[in-house]
Design a protein around this nucleic acid. Sequence first.
DNA 1: TAGATTGTTAATCGATTAACAATC
DNA 2: TAGATTGTTAATCGATTAACAATC
Lengths: 209, 209
Amino acid sequence: MKKQHVSEAVIRRLPRYYRYLDDLHSKGVVRISSNSLGSRMGITASQIRQDLSCFGEFGQQGYGYNVKELRSEIGRILGVDNRHSIVVVGVGNLGHALMQNFHFADIGFSLDAAFDVSPSLIGTTINGVKVLDLSELDEYCSQHLPDVAILTVPQSAAQATMDRLVELGVRGFWNFTNKEVSSEKEDVQVESVHFADSLLTLSYRISKR
Amino acid sequence: MKKQHVSEAVIRRLPRYYRYLDDLHSKGVVRISSNSLGSRMGITASQIRQDLSCFGEFGQQGYGYNVKELRSEIGRILGVDNRHSIVVVGVGNLGHALMQNFHFADIGFSLDAAFDVSPSLIGTTINGVKVLDLSELDEYCSQHLPDVAILTVPQSAAQATMDRLVELGVRGFWNFTNKEVSSEKEDVQVESVHFADSLLTLSYRISKR
DNA sequence: TAGATTGTTAATCGATTAACAATC
DNA sequence: TAGATTGTTAATCGATTAACAATC
């Protein structure tokens, strides 16, 4: 690691690099230059080299980058190797959809459990993952503290659920509740997916003459 | 409208302003200063005033902004008043979840139809919206051209489905396929929701030393 | 009126791009 | 070796913040 502070803008681009490199790798591409990767991604070669230089030296003059190697380096930077554990809290339509479709393992996450209050869901298994009673959350966390909780509970329960999980020691939150949740604890990280914000930017762009 | 070019950064902040103002409005708050809104949102008052100045003058010296008025002005800027029509293409778990949970009407969208290939889905109604056979897409579009298509088809069908819709005249795409889709046509707008990118930034932040 | 707060101009800061010596 | 391409420094560009006259 080279830089002490890596800007938010760089961090947001890392997953995209990872995605492109993964794609190139699966297509059998062995090496790539910053120039060629940049033109595929629609960004400058300078930006790629500048971004990567935050974390080390991964290329070779006159050659470029080894796709497989750079992919795995960026994966390592993103924490894909850490086998982070994750649980779903709230198995409504969205929680269910994520459990069914999202490839947690592909980005190094291990989906270990899901929680809900609905009797019709408790005890069922979705895509190999048990749905537990929300009342068992405390016991579960004391035994296998998950790294991340996916908040797919109703909006009204969002902050309270997060507070409870923070109390139990969970430090990462993937928030789908469309509410801004937060915690006093400074080592707690929240990443929110705001569907409405996303669709509204599209609305803006198709609106302007 | 004042500025000819509004930066991407400003556009990305608009929905968040809208969300906060909507919340304040529903709580009965009548007026707010840029200073007070800024401290709630964790940004500077300067930034708020600078952002708004791209679109006009909405405040009053010595008073601040009328919450209801500013909310509706930003709504108008975002195109919430346009009653954009939207259709779901691909009614898997995720498409289903969006149909069931997402409040399209709250941000001015009218969800008019859904399409799938599965015989068990075709003909059913989800949350008041008919699921039609994908083969009826051409006919449907020629009759009521939707402004936006939600791409919730399998990854492998993403680009082909989009190409077909562009051909039919659709100009806005809300892409959930985790594939980068694009079109030659310059007036086609794509907004992608990349779940993996989002979770990977969280992975990065909980991984650092 | 006096106090508060805007919209805007100027100053600062940070991010992107360009240039280039180093070197594979 | 000559050509290609890196990592890094310098230059540019754009975005954020500060300051303040205008004015409600």
